[in-house]
Computed example of a mutant assay.
Amino acid sequence: MSKFLLPLAAATVIVAPVATAQTNPDLAAVQRHLSGVESMTAAFSQTDRNNQVLTGTLTLKKPGKIRFQYQKGVPLLIVGDGKALTFIDYSVRQVQRWPIGNSPLGVLLDPKRDITRFAKIVPSNAPGVVSVEAYDPSRPQYGRITLVFARQANAPAGLMLQGWVALDSQGNRTTIRLTDQKFNVPVDDAAFRWTDPRRQGRAG
């Protein structure tokens, strides 16, 4: 599997509850945003620590469905079918799967997950930016993920998801930036099917 994609597809984030007397209002707004988004489409760019960039389109539908369709000429695909997150490399006919709950993307895909119990707001000098980090200091080997939002009145809960940063325990950073975000749009379940390269004609 490409090391470039590992933090995105496979880095497990197991987070411990954060003890707070009162939920931060920005964190509560992020929770409302995540709870209010049932589907999303967007264009994305993905950058690794060597500044290699791939682009493509993102399709999301709760619960548990997501698709990263990479640019033409890139033989890679990441698909979540509601249960597992699957990485497909068509160039070597390789397929790898992980439970969605063990992926940082579970934060975006599980409508029942309450992030106010395990995440924290990252301080920022930019008043229009809200960043939320999920990390378990007792399990640093699992890395961390930071979601980045911009305050925007017409977005769900007044927040526009701009992307996220996944950092694994070796310091490998993968940054996802989103543009042309559309929320709660019709998305057909067929968008999350894929062709298994190990057996021609077989679909996931």
Score class of each variant (00 low, 15 high):
residue 6 L to T: 14
residue 6 L to H: 11
residue 7 P to L: 07
residue 10 A to S: 15
residue 13 V to A: 13
residue 13 V to E: 08
residue 14 I to P: 00
residue 20 T to H: 15
residue 23 T to C: 00
residue 24 N to Y: 05
residue 26 D to V: 03
residue 30 V to E: 00
residue 33 H to F: 02
residue 34 L to F: 09
residue 38 E to M: 04
residue 39 S to P: 09
residue 44 F to D: 05
residue 44 F to T: 07
residue 45 S to Y: 03
residue 47 T to V: 14
residue 49 R to A: 13
residue 51 N to M: 12
residue 54 L to D: 06
residue 55 T to P: 02
residue 55 T to K: 15
residue 58 L to C: 05
residue 59 T to K: 10
residue 59 T to C: 04
residue 59 T to M: 11
residue 59 T to Q: 10
residue 61 K to I: 03
residue 62 K to I: 06
residue 67 R to H: 06
residue 68 F to I: 06
residue 69 Q to S: 12
residue 69 Q to K: 13
residue 69 Q to P: 03
residue 69 Q to G: 10
residue 69 Q to F: 02
residue 69 Q to H: 08
residue 69 Q to A: 15
residue 71 Q to T: 11
residue 72 K to A: 08
residue 73 G to W: 04
residue 73 G to K: 00
residue 75 P to W: 10
residue 75 P to A: 13
residue 76 L to T: 12
residue 76 L to Q: 13
residue 79 V to Q: 05
residue 80 G to R: 01
residue 81 D to W: 02
residue 83 K to Q: 12
residue 86 T to H: 07
residue 88 I to W: 05
residue 89 D to F: 13
residue 89 D to E: 07
residue 89 D to G: 08
residue 90 Y to L: 07
residue 90 Y to T: 09
residue 91 S to A: 15
residue 94 Q to H: 15
residue 95 V to P: 07
residue 96 Q to I: 08
residue 96 Q to T: 12
residue 98 W to C: 00
residue 98 W to V: 04
residue 99 P to N: 06
residue 100 I to H: 00
residue 104 P to A: 15
residue 109 L to C: 05
residue 110 D to W: 00
residue 111 P to D: 14
residue 112 K to V: 01
residue 113 R to Q: 07
residue 117 R to S: 12
residue 118 F to V: 13
residue 118 F to W: 05
residue 119 A to Y: 02
residue 123 P to H: 08
residue 124 S to V: 11
residue 126 A to E: 15
residue 127 P to S: 12
residue 129 V to N: 06
residue 131 S to T: 10
residue 131 S to I: 02
residue 132 V to E: 09
residue 132 V to A: 14
residue 132 V to P: 10
residue 133 E to A: 12
residue 134 A to G: 11
residue 140 P to D: 14
residue 142 Y to W: 07
residue 143 G to H: 08
residue 145 I to S: 00
residue 145 I to N: 02
residue 146 T to G: 03
residue 149 F to K: 01
residue 152 Q to C: 06
residue 155 A to T: 10
residue 156 P to H: 09
residue 156 P to T: 11
residue 162 Q to G: 04
residue 163 G to Q: 12
residue 166 A to P: 03
residue 166 A to L: 01
residue 166 A to Q: 06
residue 168 D to S: 14
residue 169 S to K: 12
residue 171 G to I: 09
residue 172 N to V: 10
residue 172 N to G: 08
residue 173 R to M: 07
residue 175 T to F: 04
residue 176 I to E: 05
residue 176 I to H: 09
residue 180 D to N: 15
residue 181 Q to Y: 00
residue 184 N to Y: 10
residue 185 V to N: 06
residue 186 P to N: 07
residue 187 V to Q: 05
residue 187 V to P: 06
residue 189 D to I: 07
residue 189 D to E: 11
residue 192 F to C: 11
residue 192 F to Q: 03
residue 192 F to Y: 04
residue 193 R to I: 02
residue 194 W to G: 09
residue 195 T to Q: 07
residue 201 G to H: 03
residue 201 G to S: 02
residue 202 R to I: 09
